[in-house]
Design a protein around this nucleic acid. Structure first.
Length: 484
RNA sequence: CGGGGAGUAGCGCAGCUUGGUAAGCGCGCCUGCCUUGGGAGCAGGAGGUCACCGGUUCAAAUCCGGUCUCCCCGACCA
């Protein structure tokens, strides 16, 4: 009978229906809610706090590596977008257009930015004249609109928030160096702060950014064993500088076009946090980005307001002073058990319980969200113990995810085996690929798997094998997976 | 964009086949009492333009047409 009651408020188990679990958990935990316009969502305070943490931690890295923030306009003249043909072909199906200002029809339509290469290119042509002006290292935090046909909260929404870096350099080598430096910055950021292990590499021509020379990506395996693109870094070469006429006089007094890069990560990272770490009880956030790192639940028993609450409050202020994001749940209307479930669902990494028995023993109980291990902690060591536990949770969440990634990564040279893995177990499959997009296409048609990344393997470590699809000799190894 | 499913209280749903009696259930919410170490109990109470627009009818949550949104599976997509 209690089983029935519990079932009502519980979310759909992840194993039963992953999609349903995903949307339910996002709404129940109040990360986001659907907005009245198709494909758009409201990021609620609890979810937005995570975005603020991501911004804070990534912005620091962006600035430390020499970049500065700026802000470019939301609207882009249609003629700008059309200058780079590949670019416009790539984005035109998903651009939203402004056609009127008030009642007046505009002479030229304005695109709501689907990305900012075009406006920024236009501005760079005015700002850059000499090699002394280079490199230009600018980042912007902004919103983006892409008219997507299929949308899902955080993973793909009509409007989303992101960061886009746009740099200009003297030569190809410097642009390439920047592209790869950013890629490894993203990898380090995602693995350290979000506790999500990624694979990194180059995108195939089919999957690269519209208008780029080369696109590099970090990809992670979600817990339903599908891959998610977490961030990309593009070497744009001179494509945009040629069409936007971004020229400079180089050190040898020759006039030439700059070499550019662009790179971004978006609110999709929040979706990744949900799918990589969540379980049947709900969300699970790594402490570094968790909106609430520690929740204190006083056991409201007997005369608890006099006997227990003051201690709980003291714990709260001690932790707050030592920089921990802590919340004291002193609501009277809920039982402790209810609160336990509630905060687990919301993904709080550490819970501290304090009850009459603990007061007697001068201790409290600490419960980890990831392992659910309970341990008693003496009051005296609270301030030392909590940061230590949080650090450990951060680390072991990464290790758990890495273990999952490894045990769901396969390597095969047999196409039948490849197919059967994609059919049954799913996950990442490493296989040799000839580099031909026809093979890539064929594999996609037959297995639904796409090439997520071609890992960057140094020449001397390469070996030569047969393409999984056509059998041609090749030294290119690729990661295949079904993807979001 | 194609195929399928759905929209009734904050959430999950029943009612629709056969139009009228009935806007109903569980959870949540409010008030009070009592409880509180893993989603307590009792009593009372509030809450609905039945997604929207139009049509048929004496009468529509229920029948018909259209629109919007969400979910699932494809196609497409940094």
């Amino acid at each position: 009978m209690t089983e029935d009651k519990r079932f009502v408020t519980k979310i759909t188990p992840k194993s039963k229906d992953f999609s349903k679990w995903y949307t339910e958990v996002i709404r129940t935990a109040e990360l986001a809610d659907y907005a009245p316009v198709k494909g758009m969502m409201v990021i609620r305070p609890y979810g937005y706090t995570i975005w603020e943490k991501i911004q804070e931690l990534l912005d620091k890295r962006i600035k430390e590596s020499g970049h500065s923030n700026a802000y470019f306009p939301l609207f882009i003249p249609e003629s700008f977008l059309q200058k780079e043909t590949e670019h416009v072909k790539g984005f035109s199906p998903e651009v939203a257009w402004v056609t009127h200002g008030g009642e007046e029809e505009l002479e030229e339509r304005l695109a709501v930015r689907p990305t900012s290469e075009a406006v920024i290119g236009n501005m760079y042509s005015k700002w850059i004249n000499s090699w002394r002006d280079l490199p230009v290292l600018i980042n912007q935090w902004s919103n983006i609109v892409r008219w997507e046909k299929v949308t899902r909260p955080f993973l793909r929404t009509t409007e989303f928030l992101w960061q886009e870096g746009h740099t200009a350099h003297e030569n190809y080598e410097q642009a390439q160096k920047e592209t790869l430096q950013i890629l490894s910055m993203y990898q380090e950021f995602v693995e350290k702060e979000l506790s999500i292990p990624v694979i990194s590499g180059k995108k195939t021509d089919r999957e690269k950014f519209a208008g780029a020379l080369a696109t590099y990506t970090i990809e992670a395996l979600m817990s339903d064993k599908k891959a998610l693109q977490m961030g990309t870094s593009h070497n744009l070469g001179q494509h945009f500088s040629k069409v936007f006429n971004i020229r400079f006089e180089d050190r040898n007094q020759n006039l030439q076009h700059v070499y550019q890069t662009s790179w971004g990560v978006s609110t999709r990272l929040i979706g990744a946090l949900v799918m990589a770490h969540g379980d049947d009880s709900g969300l699970q956030f790594p402490p570094r980005v968790a909106p609430v790192q520690v929740v204190i639940v006083p056991i409201s028993k007997g005369n608890w307001k006099e006997n227990i609450l003051p201690t709980a409050q003291k714990m709260e202020s001690q932790l707050k002073n030592s920089g921990v994001r802590v919340k004291l749940d002193d609501r009277e209307e809920f039982t402790p058990g209810w609160k336990f479930s509630q905060w687990e669902m919301k993904g709080v990494p550490l819970r501290l319980e304090i009850g009459p028995k603990d007061i007697e023993k001068n201790q409290l109980i600490a419960v980890r969200r990831d392992t659910r291990e309970k341990e008693s902690v003496p009051f005296d060591s609270l301030i030392d113990k909590v940061p230590h536990l949080l650090k450990d949770i951060q680390k072991s969440m990464f290790e758990e995810a890495l273990k999952f990634q490894k045990s769901n990564t396969y390597q095969t040279e047999d196409y039948q085996e490849f197919k059967s893995i994609m059919d049954s177990k799913k996950g990442l499959v490493k296989a040799y690929w000839c580099g031909n997009s026809q093979c890539e296409e064929k594999i996609k048609d037959e297995t639904m798997a796409t090439i997520r990344a071609v890992p960057l393997i140094p020449q001397e470590k390469r070996s030569s094998k047969k393409c999984i699809c056509c059998g041609a000799q090749t030294d290119t190894l690729a990661y295949f997976a079904k993807a979001y």
